[in-house]
Design a binder for these strands. Sequence first.
DNA 1: CGCAGACTGAAACAACTGTTTGAAACCCTT
DNA 2: AAGGGTTTCAAACAGTTGTTTCAGTCTGCG
Lengths: 227, 227
Amino acid sequence: MEPDTRSRILDAAEKLLVQHGLDATTLRMITTEAQANLAAVNYHFGSKEALIEAVFRRRLTWLNEQRIAALDAFEAEAQGAPLKPRQIVEAFFGVAIRMAADKGGGQSFMRLLGRTYTEPSDFVRSFLAAEYAEVIARFKAAFFKALPDVPQEEFLWRFHFMMGALSYAISGADALRLLGPIDEPDPDALYARLMSFLIGGLRAPLPTPAPASQAKAAKKPRGKRAA
Amino acid sequence: MEPDTRSRILDAAEKLLVQHGLDATTLRMITTEAQANLAAVNYHFGSKEALIEAVFRRRLTWLNEQRIAALDAFEAEAQGAPLKPRQIVEAFFGVAIRMAADKGGGQSFMRLLGRTYTEPSDFVRSFLAAEYAEVIARFKAAFFKALPDVPQEEFLWRFHFMMGALSYAISGADALRLLGPIDEPDPDALYARLMSFLIGGLRAPLPTPAPASQAKAAKKPRGKRAA
DNA sequence: CGCAGACTGAAACAACTGTTTGAAACCCTT
DNA sequence: AAGGGTTTCAAACAGTTGTTTCAGTCTGCG
C-alpha cells in the first residue's frame, strides 16, 4: 500500500477490470480497492476512459517493444535470410505468453487484453489499433518473407486464429474448467503446448487447392465447398 | 415487426448484446429497438438476467443438439471404430461456424457466445457450464478414442485453443481489421480456413520431447526455458 | 353483453453511475 | 514561519440504471 495514489489506482483498476470487464467496473470499486478518494481518479487521469487507456498503455507498449526486440534479434542472427516460422511465432506469441506467466501484474493484464480484443468498445479499439500498428507491420513482413507460398489473406486469417488461441491460452484455466477438472498449468508447459499448437495450425496444408504449389490437396470432407 | 412482444424483445436483445456487451446493453435500448414498453421485459422474463439467459438458451441448446446429432451420425457410420479427428472437429466446430454463417440471427448470437465465453460473468458462466456439460462429455470421449496417444490433459488444452480460434474466427472481421484491410469473408472460405487450421493444430507434434519421436529439437531462443 | 385474465402503457421508485466543486490538508522551498 | 502548489477529502451534481406500480386496453369465453 506504499506507492503513490496514482500507481495504486492503476493497479487496482487493472485487477478489477479483469474481473468485471470495462463497463461493470465502477470508479467507486477502483478507489475503494486502491484506498483512495473517489475524486482521485478524475484528478490524476481526467476521466474513467483515460484511466482505462492508461492501464492498457502501461503494459502494452512494453509488450510490443519486447516483441520487436525479439524479432530484431532473430533477424540480426539470420543476416537477411528469411526467419523460420517458429522464430516469428516465438517472437510474437512467445513473448506474450511469457508476460502472461509473470505473476506480478502481467498475468492479469494479459487476460484483460485478450478479452478486450474482441470487445468492440470503440474507444479502446481505436488506441489499440494505434499501439499495434508498428508491430503488426513488422510481423506481417517477416511472415510473408518466411512463407512466400502462403497467400497474404490466408495468412492474415491464420494469424487471427492464432491470436484467438493465445487469448484463450491466457484467459486460461477459468474457462478450461468448463471442459473438466484441470490443475493450474505450469507456465513452461503452457508455453510449449501453445507453441506447438500454433505452429501446427500455421503450417497446416492450405484449404483451397492453389493452382501451382501444394501437391497434396486435402480431400474435401463434405460435398458443399465451392469457389 | 409482426411477431409477439416476447419474440421481438428476444431478437432485439440478442442483436444489441452483441454490439454492446452484457452490461452496456440497457433495457431501454432493448425495448426501444423491439418497439415494446420498458416494463414488458420484466413482465415477460422477470429480470434482465433472466432475459439474457433466455437469449442464450434459445440458440445454445439448439446448437448443442446439432453438434451431438452430427457426432451421432459419424459414429453410426463408423460402426464402433474410432472416428477420424477431422470428423470430430467437423461435428463440433464445423457446426458452430456454419451456424455463425447463418445471417438469420445465428451470426450475431455466435459472436455473443464467443465473446462471453471468456467473460467471467458469474451467472452466465454457471448456466453455460450446465448447457455444455453433455456435449463436452461426448466429444471428450470421441477424441480420446480417436487419439489414444495424446495425453488427456494435452488434448484438453488443444481443445481449449481450438475454442479460442473458433471464437476469433466468428468475432471475425471486426477484430481482424486491426491486422490490415480485409474483405468480408465468404462463409465457405472461412469454414475451410478454420478447419485446416484447427486440424493442423490438433495434430501437431506433442510439445514434450517424447522418448522416441521428434528428432529435431528446436534450439532454445532465449536463455530461460527449463524443465 | 359482461367480465375475467392476459397484456400494454406512462410514470415513478430507489439505487447507482461518472464527474464536479470548494474547502481542508499536506509538502516543499524561500 | 509564511506562502504557494499539489494532493486529498466529503459532499453534491445531473443523468441513467433495473425494477415496480397501477391504471388502462385488449382478448376470448360464458
